[in-house]
Amino acid sequence: MKASIVGATGYGGLELIRIIKNHPSLEIASLHTSSQVGSVLGEENHHLLHLHEKLEQIDPELIAKKADIVFLATPSGVSNKLVPALVELGIKVIDLSGDLRLKDPQLYEKWYHHQPAEARILDKSVYGLSEWNREQIAKASLIANPGCYPTATLLGLAPLFTEGWGLGQDVIVDAKSGISGAGKTPSQATHFSEINENFKIYKVHKHQHIPEIEQQLGIWSQDLGPVSFTTHLVPMTRGIMATMYVKLKKETSTESLLELYKSIYENHYFVRIQPLDTFPSTKQVFGSNFCDIGIAYDERTNKVTIASVIDNLMKGAAGQAVQNANIMMGIEETAGLVNIPLYP
């Protein structure tokens, strides 16, 4: 199977290259960029000095002639202009941006401040939360790859709400991300002297992933209220930790919650549930497609605390995109992604 990557020089695109180069069934057909057309991949990205592919212009017809599937690792507001042409040409598409995630175009315009995709494209796209939408993904030709924060959050909350254990009111998500989540383009916020030895809250009540989280939780829960979602930048390169607080409909125990989570994720290779009284750290999923989840019940408040960690560039972006590609193309779901996390 041949794959093209649009936005090949961003962090997400570079991670896709790393995965696909080690994939048993996918190979790179072409790499595309809007900023470095004609240059050789390894010239600007020295960790890829051994690779000599040339970066090409973004041309849907050219891509469709070369590839079976295309990954769009572009900023928001770009892919929604490319997708219609690619869909018309019959190529499978996985969009890593936020352009196709929200089914309500008005919500997209409000939170992303861009013109939304066409309604027919939004209707055609499938939300690619791999562990929960596998059947839809297998039949799809257009995937909206979930955001990094929503992936960690939704995988952590899903068992509570799909099984009716959690109250949809007053759900709180306290999330932290490494600096690579801000993308490759430098800014004052990502300058070394700004982020080093610092811990910053940002986009308070304004993060564009809020409606994405609420959209999926609303499918699972009839009584969902607004979700309190707060994000922070941590002075590390990779990783997300989402710590969630949910009130339950009835009293339970940590042991019962662990049994619930283990039974639901039993056949999902990339979700690992921590043992009793053990909680995950971002380091233990570094460079991998795993999502590790720890759980604790507070009998005083009848609330559960869930800690969910992922590598934002892997399970939160390129790794989940390849997982979705595997499902779409009828390849073993774990192909190209079975690697031990980097440690230490």
Rank of each mutant, 00 (worst) to 15 (best):
Y108S: 15
Y108K: 11
W111E: 02
H113Y: 04
H114N: 03
P116H: 02
E118T: 00
E118Q: 13
I121Q: 07
L122I: 01
S125H: 13
V126K: 10
V126I: 15
Y127Q: 09
Y127D: 07
S130P: 04
W132G: 00
R134Q: 12
R134E: 15
E135S: 12
I137Q: 09
K139T: 14
S141D: 11
A144I: 05
A144F: 04
N145M: 14
P146W: 00
G147I: 05
G147V: 07
Y149V: 10
Y149Q: 03
A152Y: 05
A152P: 13
T153V: 12
L154I: 14
L155H: 04
G156Y: 11
F161C: 08
T162P: 08
E163F: 04
E163M: 11
E163K: 07
G164A: 05
G164F: 14
W165Q: 01
W165S: 00
G168P: 08
V173T: 07
V173S: 07
A175K: 02
K176D: 01
G178A: 00
S180N: 06
G181L: 13
K184H: 05
K184G: 00
K184S: 11
S187A: 13
Q188A: 15
F192W: 12
F192I: 08
S193P: 00
I195N: 07
N196Y: 05
E197G: 06
F199H: 02
K200R: 13
K200I: 10
I201S: 12
V204Y: 08
V204N: 00
V204P: 02
V204K: 06
H205D: 05
H207D: 12
Q208E: 12
H209Q: 11
P211W: 08
I213E: 10
E214H: 02
Q215A: 12
Q215W: 06
G218S: 13
G218V: 00
I219Y: 08
W220P: 12
W220R: 06
S221M: 13
L224D: 01
G225L: 04
G225P: 09
P226E: 14
V227D: 06
V227W: 09
S228R: 15
T231M: 14
T231N: 10
V234F: 02
